[in-house]
Nucleic acid binder design. Structure first.
Lengths: 207, 207, 207, 207
DNA sequence: GATGAATGAGGTTTCATTCAT
DNA sequence: TATGAATGAAACCTCATTCAT
């Protein structure tokens, strides 16, 4: 049974990866430590050398992925100068691309499923992710509204709308599995989303 | 414990209601048959008189709520004539109002969490809800694109965008619990969503 | 598997009896819930209908036997009048007889083995059994010392000596199993113990 | 952690000492090899270089302490001549002092707790310690009974009584922890015990 | 000799499900 | 129809033991 000939320094990452996989596939409650260990190519007991327990493993998985989320928040201030719509399409493409990476999709799935049982994660997103999004995106929108490029709308709500448009494709195409029924290219999605959003908030006379 | 109805005809509905509640609060795996029975004011064994088992109960809950979802799909053809944006705001208000009803919120939560374990439900939404939305909404959009009122966009993707904007508020405000952090009136949400969407797809010269 | 046709009101007593048996035979840690359930003629899960867990079961066992211990404390005040030694022999016989009942022996064994892990039990005996013994026995001794029937000794220590003489026979004969090596009749033990003790504390001149 | 000796020759003794400590504190089943290794300032694996396993370690601990017990048996023949009671008080003091040494107390505790799981130890005490005590003490008592100094009693039972009086103070004061509730000086205990015992067995007219 | 990472058997506990009443 | 006592499978977690380094 000696197939554990990988460096022990990689163990935690290896376990986290396997755990994300199994949690996404089976859900937290249905996932067994044996499943996860098997997926990682080790045995049950070894997981407990690196993580306190199942719940802590889940938390570690979520925390390890949190950085990715935060890094996804578009650096919108780059858009203040230059061709807004073209740059936005670029930025939106990067964002959607990142969102649809398998690891991110799995994480979203896990978080959505277990949010109610993970008060820490709930708080994390309430108090970090959402405010960050506001600072980055809503701030940018507000600036343009103030100078008249964009129409006067609630910037927080508008920001949420933008995220919603991206998120729904993760939910429907990836998580619900609609990509088999209604395949869509990421390019078409990005074009449509940015098109609707920027035409939707642009001031008519300005264009 | 809760409600003292002794009418056996209402038992199934009574159980379904309790089950939706408990499933939403605890998640499928954490919910026990005792929890559900207690919430329904009966005892565990009784549930088995009306439902095959726990999984079947979950399915029954989801199916019982499915009709509500379908009924939510806006009857957009009503918009073909008349002041589109004003009617849309009206329709959007009804839609968001319905989405945010506690029972619907709970159902969305349950479905999101358990989607992976409910292939039947997955198929149901892939093969019924999404196509329905396409027929109802995308069809309406396509018609307007053809006559030039709306810009030429992928109608399916645009439809998804519209749903995404509504859905994100259910996710963040209700399920993630952001309503305590960033309270928003339903009116403001509807105004912003319909404003962005219709300005976003409208042909410039047309207004 | 339906051999559980005894009244459910007897379940707790039935489980306690089986648990005492298994705990005494195997020790707390080595005893499995399956062992206990098997001994009681039921299955594991049933135990949890009546007791919170293994530790609580042990506590319940000990508590259920506590009354027996307290009842064993000789009512010495009865000896104040009458032929002390003859009455004492009678009383000592009752006491030793009670101590050597299998249920009591088992309980002593369990308590000795698990005392360190049962702070509640430790406190119980420190704060109830010992003081009670002092009130009952040491009080009697003190009274006789004051009137000169008995020599002046520390009554608490003397009381402890008396108990020690009885207890050592439980420990060696029953628990250590010496009764096979050095069989002794209860009568001989009682005669010797009371003989030594009363001659030992009696005032010479008085007799 | 504890003591920084690096002499491999002391390893076994060092481990035995740590093991006695941990076994007494936690009980055999609750003690982990990690606990013991930590207490000895080494690591788990090292224990297996010197002992076969956990059970064998316990046996080694008990056996290593057995000599101490045997050495405790009072050399009573020294008492045949001279002032019996005064010499007995001296001897009893040494005996009780030895019994109450922490290492001995811990050993008694361990043996009492695990006796049922250590048939070897059980046999050891049945077949060595008890007979030895008989040879040493009961023989002495018998000799005095034969010459009339002591009353005619069963010498084996009387011996057991003497041990019981000493042992009860180890049990109650040290193991049950009663020394905080009813503190007693070793001197007072020894005086009382020897006083009761020798007055108890002495022939009246002799003194 | 010493280490500590890895293993996996075993035990407690939970809970969906059954069924006699 | 309704109950709730009983069941037993399944999962988390611990820890004695092994073994490559």
């Amino acid at each position: 049974m000696a197939k554990w000939r990988r460096c022990p320094e990689e163990r935690p990452a290896q376990i986290l990866e396997a755990a994300l996989d199994v949690f996404a596939r089976r859900g937290f409650a249905e996932a067994t430590m044996d499943d996860i260990a098997g997926e990682a190519g080790i045995t049950k007991g070894t997981i407990y050398l690196y993580f306190e327990g199942k719940r802590e493993l889940l938390l570690a998985v979520v925390r390890a992925q949190l950085g990715r989320f935060m890094a996804l928040l578009p650096r919108m201030h780059a858009l203040i100068t230059g061709d807004i719509e073209e740059n936005a399409r670029q930025l939106g493409g990067d964002f959607l691309g990142a969102l649809m990476e398998p690891e991110v999709t799995k994480t979203i799935q896990v978080i959505l499923a277990e949010l109610q049982h993970l008060p820490e994660v709930k708080r994390l997103y309430q108090e970090e992710a959402l405010p960050q999004a506001n600072v980055q995106v809503a701030g940018f929108l507000k600036a343009h509204m103030d100078v008249g490029t964009f129409r006067q709308l609630d910037p927080t709500i508008a920001t949420r709308c933008l995220f919603g448009m991206f998120m729904i494709f993760v939910l429907t195409q990836e998580i619900l599995g609609a990509s088999r029924i209604t395949p869509m290219s990421q390019e078409a999605i990005v074009d449509t989303v940015t098109g609707i959003f920027f035409h939707g908030i642009m001031n008519r006379g300005t264009a």
